[in-house]
Design a protein around this nucleic acid. Sequence first.
DNA 1: CCGTATCCCTTAGGATACTG
DNA 2: CAGTATCCTAAGGGATACGG
Lengths: 117, 117
Amino acid sequence: MLDRLGDRWSVLVVVALGKGAHRFRELQRAVPGISQRMLTVTTRRLVRDGLVRRTVHDTVPPQVEYQLTDLGLGFATMVDGLAAWSREHRPAINEARATFDAADQSPHPAATPTPRT
Amino acid sequence: MLDRLGDRWSVLVVVALGKGAHRFRELQRAVPGISQRMLTVTTRRLVRDGLVRRTVHDTVPPQVEYQLTDLGLGFATMVDGLAAWSREHRPAINEARATFDAADQSPHPAATPTPRT
DNA sequence: CCGTATCCCTTAGGATACTG
DNA sequence: CAGTATCCTAAGGGATACGG
């Protein structure tokens, strides 16, 4: 499944569905920036992997509902763990990036005695 | 960091470094299939994010060592959790895929039975 | 409303060659 | 050994238009 993680949209859709079942349009609004095409592609992939169940209500205006399966729920839980970790450590990462970027943007200052503090 | 997860090579490199420090070439061998270019790109990204520390030993044949920082170690732990989960559930996912694939390949047995081999 | 199919552009990333 | 730079192809993904 590490390859499914490599799929940015899949992760976001799973997170969105973790908050409850959604219809197609709802889901699109719940995942800002996703195009109609990618929503279709992503949902199909998730359904195929057994992480999401797709229910079609054959009403007058077509209505399709997407919800996590037990498997998908487990996956969502794992992803939430990752998300929590990333939130917790984002500051540290941002600091590391800032330090790194500052470092190689001053290639040749007369004296750069490792400016610390 | 969810975007770093979306980076397949980053994950694999972190996992490899989770087993100990490595030199450039060693790392390349430890991550089957990665090209020299992607190894460079990936390691730089990880160093920038503060997940990996890069140590240059200025010996006659250049020698560079990569190792996880504490931050990287925490990340590696999370990823291991994911990997464990995926291993545990791979059978279920494969079954779901097989079922799905079998389902939409026999839509209408009456005519045009989708000549497959 | 819920998709599917087409066009098209941007990017990831492999192969290769060269420097320190 | 450890990269860096260049080239080039394939895949990802947005915009749009059409079918059920």
